[in-house]
Design a protein around this nucleic acid. Sequence first.
DNA 1: TCTTGTTGCGGAATGCCATTCCGTCATCAT
DNA 2: ATGATGACGGAATGGCATTCCGCAACAAGA
Lengths: 191, 191
Amino acid sequence: MRQETDDVRRNNVPERDLDEMDRKLLGALCEDATVSYAELGGKVGLSAPAAHERVKRLRRSQAIRSTSVLIDPVAVNKPLLAFVHVDTRGWGKTPELMAISAYPEVEEIHSVAGDACMLLKVRAKDTRALEGLLAKLYDTPGVMATRSYVVLSTYLERPVQPGSTKVWPMPSHMAQPIEHRRSVNVIASGE
Amino acid sequence: MRQETDDVRRNNVPERDLDEMDRKLLGALCEDATVSYAELGGKVGLSAPAAHERVKRLRRSQAIRSTSVLIDPVAVNKPLLAFVHVDTRGWGKTPELMAISAYPEVEEIHSVAGDACMLLKVRAKDTRALEGLLAKLYDTPGVMATRSYVVLSTYLERPVQPGSTKVWPMPSHMAQPIEHRRSVNVIASGE
DNA sequence: TCTTGTTGCGGAATGCCATTCCGTCATCAT
DNA sequence: ATGATGACGGAATGGCATTCCGCAACAAGA
């Protein structure tokens, strides 16, 4: 009875917000996920079983999507990185475009606001391969045009970081934006 | 003697190109790096010690850069993703721009060819945080303008894939590009 | 205030698995 | 032919992941 309720809930929402300890664990695992739980616990001030329990919870709640290896693109012969902006005619062209996710050189597909409709991150062996993918794109119905931004050098590339900047030092000459309330029913929010 | 030579060499170049088995291992580890070596070996047709040995070599040669956890952006309260194109005046403005890599919301920094100079991938809590980062960008000397592409939906996002598309089905009406030789000294290339 | 249930943690024990060792086989150069 | 080199698999062992259990802190309710 009770168990089922928990299971259902845990499939959607992380049962509880992550606290500072969880963020520290995520930060440590982000840098190196091969550490032992004893070492991990030592880094954040927790015993091995406690660290294990929290990480297990983070995996269950899908805060940790997966554990993966980060591959050197050059080692797998994919030195060419490009961001491709795609203009499509009309809306709802996404299902057709999703077909190109079958190509392993496509790493990201987003729909964006701005003068482009879709944005792809593509990593390929050479310009021929990029051309081949672009040809595939133009084969897709609804694709009007593409603009490719070929990366010359990559200075930073890292996965999602658990931390957030607390305060953004704003220039004082800027006007203060209006603070919107999160919900009209909230009288006094803790945050 | 011998050992030193090996060490020096292994710091730069992967001592040997990766074969099909290495790529299968990378593919499996990319999907899930938590599997045991026995299970990993089973997936690719190798014993546990053999799989372990090869993975160890892949780590040493830096073909595997690191092992990391992939974090759900929403779980860490970063639902806003944007790609920011930055126009700079003149060249060599990269060192100044690198300062913003201190902010954990900046995930990628590339220099690109095209009408933009630099390209950032930014993941933030809300539009206020993005605005704060843009303010920081404009504070940087040499930054002329920025164009932000705010992501509405993400349809695909995955790390570097070890596989490559072998043949790109080109439309027959396209002209055949000239095949450039890799090096004039190569008489008969194996590939 | 006392009780009761819940939750998170740490110590200890256990069993699995990473890691090493070693023998075998294939390949290659001499 | 033969020695060297490298890759692999079986077996053994030590470490660590995982579980179990007791304790303490905290919240809800009488």
